[in-house]
Computed example of a mutant assay.
Amino acid sequence: MRDAVIVDAVRTPIGKRDGALAQVHAADLSAHVLNALVERTGVDPATVDDVMWGCVTQIGDQSSNVARSAVLAAGWPEHVPGVTINRACGSSQQSVDSAAHAVMAGQYDLVVAGGVETMTRIPLGAHRTTGQPYGPSVLARYNGFEFNQGIGAELIAQRWAFSRELLDAYAGRSHANAAAAIDAGVFDDHLVPVEVDGTTFTTDEGLRRGTSVETLARLTPSFKSDGVIHAGNASQISDGAAALLITTTERARELGLTPLARYHSGAVSGADPITMLTGPIPATAKVLGRARLSIEDIGVFEVNEAFAPVPLAWLAETGADPARLNPLGGAIAVGHPLGASGAILMTRLLAQMRRTGSRYGLQTMCEGGGTANATIIELLS
């Protein structure tokens, strides 16, 4: 079987809600990272077999196959196709998995995988205004329970006995790690500035330096009056886009490109859709088994910080080294632009693996409906 390698990965800075990227259309934001890949690698866009693009709320600006709109907005040849993928928060991680699978199967030679979400312009939950998500049979199966990720996070905190102080301490760690990474220039190699109205946007906007248990204690619970989940220990509503170029080692050599990492293994798993956010635990076990690796073999873990209980429950169940978990911060600190987050996590994973020389890295994300992707990559360069 052929291999699949990542030869470059880029992302925009993550904009906060109503922030620097609020006026940028999703297709244009996507086009920005598509063209950044071309400029950095010298690849002729005419040779790209497909653009596989994650996007969650596919209405309004993000409707009508935003992947195809992105290709056209980028000025790429009309024969280059695009497909938009929705696996909830893991959409662009799925786009990376699907691109790698297509390359390994020999159906594609050169693919761009990534995603976008402009949550300022398409608010979270906007899809609920146009119909009935889930459908009557699903709702009946779960006794009419209204699926809600915030309530799922509360249930996880209750099940694992996580106190608010513990969750808030984790949130503070996320901000501290992100601040240290920004100050050290860890993101500089893959971050593509965006110019908006004459101002160049270069840094993730959501970071709040000095966040602590004490500062977060002032916030009111968001989902239950006596709950532990609030805006400060949950991911931020954000805007952003990211893209990776995936090919084979042989094709990379022909193009004069140096692979950064090899796609090693991938898995997807389902879990209870009411708790909803525990999927990364079985997905991690599944991908490690498929890869024939142990948790100790992995040098860096990126577990999406949808809510603080998610990585903490994952940590408790996997026994992973806490120091290897989200060392550059995460969505609590810098945001979670849904359809882009999987690809953004992959840029972070690559950055930390290259920084530390870690051979293997594992990325996993909880997803609406109770599914989760898990992906292992192997450092090459």
Rank of each mutant, 00 (worst) to 15 (best):
A267L: 04
Q236A: 02
L288C: 02
A252W: 15
G299Y: 01
G256Q: 01
T248Y: 06
S222P: 02
L277K: 01
T258G: 14
I332G: 04
G319E: 00
N304C: 09
V194S: 13
L216C: 08
T200E: 15
L315S: 02
I229W: 09
G232R: 00
L245I: 15
A316L: 12
I237N: 04
E302P: 07
K224T: 15
L277C: 14
S265M: 10
D197A: 15
I274R: 07
M276T: 06
G319L: 02
A243I: 15
A316H: 12
I237W: 03
T211S: 09
E317K: 05
G240M: 12
D272P: 06
T215V: 15
G299V: 07
R262P: 02
G266M: 11
F223E: 03
R218W: 02
V287W: 05
D321F: 12
I246Y: 01
A306P: 12
T199C: 06
A331N: 05
R253I: 09
T258I: 11
S265V: 15
E254F: 15
A323Y: 14
S294T: 13
L244K: 11
R290I: 03
Q236P: 13
R209M: 02
P221I: 09
E254P: 00
A217N: 05
D239C: 06
L288Q: 14
A306R: 00
F201G: 02
R324L: 08
D272Q: 03
V268D: 01
G227I: 09
G256K: 13
A217D: 05
G256C: 10
T247A: 05
A217L: 02
S212V: 14
L216S: 03
L219M: 01
S265G: 07
P282W: 13
A243P: 09
N304F: 00
G240E: 02
G299L: 00
P221E: 02
V194A: 07
G256E: 07
E254R: 13
T247L: 14
A231Y: 07
Q236I: 11
S238M: 10
S235W: 01
R292C: 10
A242V: 01
P282H: 10
L255T: 11
G270Q: 05
E205G: 04
L312K: 08
S265A: 15
G210H: 08
E302M: 00
P259T: 09
